[in-house]
């Protein structure tokens, strides 16, 4: 006869097995991509797909010759870090004043900022394209950085605002009575106190910029094209190349995947605009 405790244990094992099965199925495409990146092109195309094979690093070693990987990776790095740094510099003062000098208009301003995020990019694709053409910003890292800064700014202001809001005003007042200037208040008091929140804001901006694939596909061609565009160029098939596609994809996604794993808890707040904490 099974006791209640045993029943509970069986229940837990069943739930665990089911959860693991679902998780493994959903993770499978990523696992398969990484696995394929270590195959030779012949193994990668084999039917049925080969599970046991002699792993090779060949794809990783030839990526750069074949598709100039580092050029695209460098563009991704410059554009996402550039947009994140610029965004932080603009967003921190705005969030600071909204959190500590709240007026009647603050709430409206915040919601209005968010609403700019809801403008579908296709709605403004043509004007942006033409403005970029006139200012010769098409296919430049500067142009893409500007766009990414703008599309992430509302989320960044919003997230930083919610973190600043949690700091008691008394602490800033104490610093002010000690003679701190606004600059010192922000740099020496506020930023150190909210560094966890600021880091996750920056991380979210990095992830969103790194993975952005509307503007990068429409505004760049070769010179400033980031990794999203490099991977998209693999969509036109030219022979057997899936092992290499997998290797490029694995390298392009690995850093962001690790960032995401590390900061998943904090990201929820930013991703839901603070509606879920």
């Amino acid at each position: 006869m099974t006791t209640l405790k045993q029943q509970k244990q069986i229940h837990a094992i069943l739930l665990g097995t089911l959860s693991w099965t679902i998780a493994l199925i959903l993770f499978f495409p990523i696992f398969w991509m990484v696995l394929t990146s270590f195959k030779t092109e012949i193994d990668a195309f084999a039917t049925p797909p080969s599970i046991f094979f002699w792993p090779t690093l060949e794809n990783y070693l030839t990526i750069n010759e074949r598709s100039d990987y580092f050029h695209f990776a460098w563009n991704s790095v410059v554009v996402s870090f550039g947009a994140t740094i610029a965004g932080m510099i603009i967003a921190i003062p705005a969030a600071f004043s909204m959190a500590f000098y709240e007026t009647k208009r603050t709430k409206t301003t915040l919601l209005w900022m968010l609403s700019t995020k809801m403008l579908p990019p296709v709605g403004v694709l043509m004007p942006i394209y033409l403005i970029f053409k006139d200012f010769s910003l098409l296919d430049t890292k500067t142009g893409l950085t500007i766009i990414y800064t703008l599309i992430n700014l509302p989320i960044m202001v919003w997230m930083i605002y919610t973190y600043f809001k949690e700091i008691p005003k008394d602490i800033l007042e104490a610093a002010r009575i000690d003679g701190a200037s606004v600059m010192q208040e922000i740099l020496l008091v506020l930023i150190p106190m909210t560094k966890g929140g600021l880091a996750s804001t920056a991380l979210l901006s990095l992830i969103l910029s790194w993975n952005e694939a509307f503007w990068s596909l429409n505004l760049t061609s070769s010179e400033a094209a980031p990794l999203t565009a490099l991977v998209a160029s693999y969509s036109s098939p030219e022979g057997l190349f899936w092992a290499k596609l997998s290797a490029v994809s694995t390298l392009a996604c690995a850093p962001i995947l690790i960032f995401g794993w590390v900061s998943q808890k904090q990201l929820v707040r930013g991703l839901s605009f603070g509606a879920v904490k």
Binding site: F27, A213, A252, G260
Partner: peptide, 21 residues
């Protein structure tokens, strides 16, 4: 961690991995 991973894969990668693999 396994369950939330697909969210961090860039759209062009997930489309091509699904399409070709």
């Amino acid at each position: 961690v396994l369950l939330i991973s697909p969210f961090f894969i860039m759209p062009t990668v997930s489309s091509l991995v699904w399409k070709n693999l």
